[in-house]
Computed example of a mutant assay.
Amino acid sequence: MTASSTQGVKTVLHPVSDLAQAKAVYAALLGVEPQTDGPHYVGFDVAGQHIGLLPGGGPQGLTTPVAYWHVPDVEAKVAEVTAAGATAKEPAHDVGGGRLVATVIDPDGNLLGLVQG
C-alpha cells in the first residue's frame, strides 16, 4: 500500500452537548453498547466503523461531525494533500495506543480527518 492510498472512512467523530443522552441515542441507533465509555469520550465499534462522541467537541473544538480517513502514513498523507491545495489544521499527533491523527482543511473549508494505526 502506498502513502497515496487510503483504507477509506472508518471513523466519524461527533461533537455532543449531553454525553449521556447522546450515548443512549447512538446505542439505540447502532444496536450495541459503547466499547469505550469515559467522561471525555464514548466510542462505538460496529460493522468496521468507529463512531466517537466528544462532549463539547473535545479538545479539537469540533462543531460538526468529522470523517477520518484511515491511511498507512498520516504525515505523508498530510504532506500530499497540502501539496495539492489543502491547509494543515491539526498536525499529526499520538492520541494513544500508537494511533496518529491529523486534520486538514480542503479548499472549500471542509475539515478532513486522517488517522494512522
Rank of each mutant, 00 (worst) to 15 (best):
Val71Thr: 11
Gly117Lys: 04
Lys89Glu: 11
Met1Thr: 12
Pro55Val: 01
Leu62Ser: 05
Leu29Ala: 14
Val46Asn: 09
Leu19Tyr: 11
Asp45Leu: 11
Ala83Tyr: 01
Thr64Lys: 15
Gly57Asn: 08
Ala47Thr: 06
Thr82Arg: 13
Thr6Cys: 03
Gly57Gln: 10
Leu29Tyr: 11
Ala27Met: 03
Thr63Cys: 09
Thr63Ser: 14
Val95Ser: 04
Asp106Phe: 14
Thr11Pro: 00
Thr36Arg: 09
Thr6Trp: 07
His50Pro: 00
Ala88Ser: 10
Gly61Thr: 10
Ile51Gln: 06
Pro65Asn: 05
Ala20Arg: 15
Gly48Pro: 05
Gly8Met: 09
Thr36Ser: 02
His50Asp: 02
Asp18Met: 11
His93Cys: 00
His70Leu: 10
Gly48Lys: 04
Val74Gln: 06
Asp108Leu: 10
Tyr68Leu: 10
Thr63Glu: 15
Ala28Gly: 07
Val42Leu: 08
Gly31Ala: 05
Val12Ser: 13
Pro65Gly: 01
Val12Arg: 12
Asn110Val: 09
Leu13Met: 13
Leu114Arg: 00
Leu112Ser: 06
Val115Cys: 01
Gly117Asp: 10
Pro72Met: 06
Lys10Gly: 01
Ala79Val: 02
Thr2His: 14
Gly58Cys: 04
Leu53Pro: 02
Pro55Thr: 01
Val74Gly: 01
His40Phe: 09
Asn110Leu: 12
Gly57Pro: 08
Leu54Asp: 06
Thr87Met: 07
Asp106Ser: 12
Ala47Lys: 09
Ala20Met: 11
Thr36Asp: 00
Gln21Trp: 02
Ala79Gln: 14
Gln116Glu: 15
Pro34Ala: 07
Val46Asp: 04
Val42Ile: 04
Asp73Phe: 13
His70Asn: 07
Gln116Lys: 07
Ala88Lys: 12
Thr11Asp: 10
Ala47Phe: 11
Leu100Gly: 03
Glu80Ser: 14
Asp106Cys: 13
Ala67Phe: 02
His70Thr: 03
Ala92Leu: 05
Gly113Tyr: 01
Asp18Leu: 11
Asp108Tyr: 06
Tyr26Gly: 00
Val42Asp: 03
Gly85Thr: 01
Ala20Phe: 02
Gln49Tyr: 13
Lys77Trp: 06
Lys10Pro: 00
Pro39Asp: 14
Leu100Ala: 04
Ser17Tyr: 03
Val46Cys: 05
Asp108Ala: 13
Ala79Asp: 07
Gly58Trp: 04
Asp94Lys: 01
Val78Pro: 05
Thr11Gly: 01
Val81Ala: 04
Ala20Lys: 15
Gly98Val: 07
Val95Gln: 03
Met1Trp: 14
Ser5Arg: 08
Ala86Trp: 10
Gln7Met: 11
Ala20Leu: 13
Val9Ile: 15
Ile51Leu: 15
Val71Gln: 11
Gln7Gly: 10
Ser5Ala: 08
Gly43Arg: 13
Leu111Ser: 05
Thr36Gly: 01
Val9Gln: 14
Val81Met: 14
Thr6Glu: 01
Ala92Thr: 05
Asp37Gln: 05
Ala92Pro: 08
Ala22Met: 10
Ala84Cys: 02
Gly113Met: 01
